[in-house]
């Protein structure tokens, strides 16, 4: 036994245990994702054994809960796209302009109040936005303009979803703009550019990848949004070109089935998983596109 013990076996064991615990924590979220995908695929396969994939993807009638059900998903996809489109038309300009204001124009004290307030807006439960659409946006804002609007419509739901995702766009875009080096702005000002020119022609292009990524994330959030559309968009799956009509989205259908009394294992029940899988595939694709945009267009400033 040496006089001074430099062996560290006990510490060695401790470090290894900590490493394992941390690994397990990280693994849980990955495994959960894998599990979800597995369940979706397993049940969806059972559905597709009874309904051909092509009929599902390209059929234009969705009547899952009627006798002689038809499972053409296009009406649900179109409802989802309408709501998403309306939400993006509302949120992208407002979100981007708020971000430019916060990042380039607001002085420190204003920003210190505004940015947390904006992020608080993102913490409002989405069901509250749903009430808001039904009890305020439709009767007080939309009906005076479109007297024919019914109690449920894609427009009122889409506007509410848009308001919901403004903070997401504003906050992520602002982060991207704040990451643009100060030296670049100074370069712009030193060329005799005005604040407006520096903001739009130097900062926004330099933050382009981050801004586009925020747009795509906002789109995928709108596609997946559920409570607002379940409350405000109605529950009529139809392929229409008029956003004043009620529509049903993919998420809206899933809520309707779960809150109804569809027997376990029946075809309408299995159709949930097919719709869920499609939804998952669409948002996954959008996230991949956003990652690609970020890596392709990111400017590296040392």
């Amino acid at each position: 036994m040496p006089a001074i013990d430099l062996g560290g076996r006990r510490r060695d064991v401790g470090e290894r245990v900590i490493g394992i615990v941390l690994f397990v924590c990280a693994a849980i979220s990955v495994l959960t994702t894998v599990g979800i995908v597995f369940v979706l695929i397993e049940q969806a396969v059972e559905f597709f054994l009874q309904v051909p994939v092509a009929d599902f993807l390209f059929g234009s009638t969705w009547s899952a809960l009627f006798n002689n059900p038809q499972f053409g998903v296009l009406p649900l996809v179109s409802g989802t796209l309408w709501i998403t489109l309306i939400a993006l038309v509302v949120s992208l300009p407002l979100g981007l302009l708020s971000a430019i204001y916060l990042s380039e124009y607001a002085d420190q004290r204003v920003r210190d109040v505004l940015k947390p307030a904006l992020e608080l807006l993102a913490g409002v439960p989405t069901i509250v936005y749903g009430f808001f659409a039904v009890t305020f946006i439709r009767p007080d804002i939309l009906r005076p303009i479109f007297p024919s609007i019914g109690p449920f419509s894609a427009l009122s739901a889409g506007i509410a979803v848009g308001i919901l995702i403004i903070p997401l766009v504003a906050s992520l875009s602002e982060d991207a703009m704040r990451a643009v080096p100060r030296a670049l702005r100074e370069g712009g000002y030193a060329m005799g550019a005005t604040k407006h020119e520096v903001s739009w022609q130097v900062v926004v292009p330099a933050a382009f990848s981050g801004i586009v990524a925020s747009f795509i994330l906002a789109g995928s959030r709108a596609i997946g949004e559920t409570m607002i559309v379940a409350l405000a968009a109605g529950s009529r799956p139809q392929l229409v070109t008029n956003p004043l009509e009620p529509m049903q989205t993919m998420t809206g259908f899933i809520v309707q089935v779960f809150s109804g009394d569809v027997p376990y294992g029946s075809l309408p029940y299995l159709s949930l998983f097919a719709v869920g899988l499609l939804l998952f595939a669409i948002t996954l694709m959008l996230n991949l596109i956003s990652q690609w945009v970020v890596s392709k267009f990111r400017e590296v400033y040392e």
Binding site: P181, A183, L184, A190, M191, V202
Partner: peptide
């Protein structure tokens, strides 16, 4: 107006992207 007559080059090169 001043900066349009008096240009500036900075310590670290800062070309626009």
């Amino acid at each position: 107006a001043v900066r349009r007559r008096i240009g500036m080059v900075f310590q670290k090169p800062n070309p626009f992207p």
